[in-house]
Deep mutational scan, measured.
Amino acid sequence: RNRTTFNSSQLQALERVFERTHYPDAFVREDLARRVNLTEARVQVWFQNRRAKFRR
């Protein structure tokens, strides 16, 4: 699988949700994935990586 590149509008939407919660539930992830046209799995991994970055 190739690395996913996120465009600025996708990142903006992802970061907005991250500000609200670092652990979005499945419903939030599904909705977000639909809105930014990504798979739920990509959204889930983005949050895992974003939390790791946040802890650094």
Rank of each mutant, 00 (worst) to 15 (best):
R1L: 06
R1G: 15
R1A: 09
R1K: 15
R1C: 11
R1E: 09
R1T: 14
N2K: 11
N2H: 08
N2F: 06
R3Y: 14
R3I: 14
R3G: 08
R3V: 10
T4W: 08
T4P: 09
T4R: 08
T5W: 06
T5S: 12
F6E: 12
F6T: 02
N7W: 01
N7T: 15
N7Y: 04
N7S: 12
S8F: 09
S8L: 09
S8V: 08
S8A: 14
S9K: 14
S9G: 09
S9N: 10
S9H: 10
S9L: 10
S9T: 13
Q10H: 07
Q10N: 08
Q10C: 02
Q10T: 07
Q10G: 03
Q10S: 04
L11Q: 10
L11I: 13
L11A: 09
L11C: 07
Q12F: 10
Q12S: 11
Q12W: 06
Q12N: 13
A13I: 03
A13L: 11
L14W: 01
L14Q: 02
L14P: 02
L14C: 06
L14N: 00
L14F: 03
L14V: 03
L14I: 00
L14Y: 03
E15T: 00
E15I: 00
E15Y: 02
E15K: 01
E15Q: 01
E15R: 01
R16F: 08
R16L: 12
V17K: 06
V17S: 04
V17L: 14
V17Q: 09
F18Q: 07
F18N: 00
F18R: 04
R20D: 08
R20V: 10
R20H: 13
R20K: 15
R20L: 11
T21Q: 04
T21P: 04
T21H: 05
T21N: 11
T21C: 09
H22A: 15
Y23F: 07
Y23G: 01
P24E: 02
P24V: 00
P24R: 03
P24S: 03
P24L: 00
D25W: 05
D25G: 07
D25R: 00
A26W: 11
F27L: 12
F27Q: 15
V28S: 09
V28Y: 03
V28W: 03
R29I: 15
R29F: 12
E30W: 09
D31Q: 10
D31N: 09
L32C: 01
L32P: 07
L32D: 06
A33V: 06
A33T: 01
A33G: 05
A33K: 01
A33D: 01
R34A: 09
R35K: 11
R35H: 07
R35G: 07
V36K: 05
V36I: 13
N37D: 09
N37V: 02
N37Q: 07
N37S: 04
L38K: 01
L38G: 05
L38D: 04
L38R: 03
T39F: 00
T39G: 03
T39W: 03
T39I: 05
T39N: 08
T39Y: 01
E40S: 10
E40V: 12
E40F: 06
E40W: 15
E40C: 11
A41W: 08
A41G: 12
A41K: 06
A41V: 06
A41I: 07
R42T: 14
R42S: 14
R42K: 12
V43H: 00
V43A: 00
Q44A: 12
V45D: 14
V45K: 12
V45P: 10
V45M: 09
V45L: 10
V45R: 10
V45C: 10
W46N: 01
W46S: 05
W46T: 00
F47C: 01
F47E: 04
F47K: 10
F47T: 02
F47I: 04
Q48S: 07
Q48L: 11
Q48N: 04
Q48K: 14
Q48V: 08
Q48R: 08
N49T: 11
N49A: 11
N49E: 15
N49C: 09
R50D: 01
R50I: 11
R50H: 00
R50A: 14
R51L: 05
R51H: 01
R51I: 00
R51W: 06
R51Q: 04
R51K: 00
A52H: 08
A52D: 14
A52F: 05
A52N: 09
K53W: 08
K53Q: 14
K53V: 13
K53D: 15
K53C: 13
F54N: 09
F54P: 07
F54G: 07
R55I: 03
R55Y: 13
R55T: 10
R55P: 02
R55D: 03
R55S: 14
R55E: 14
R56W: 05
R56Y: 05
R56T: 10
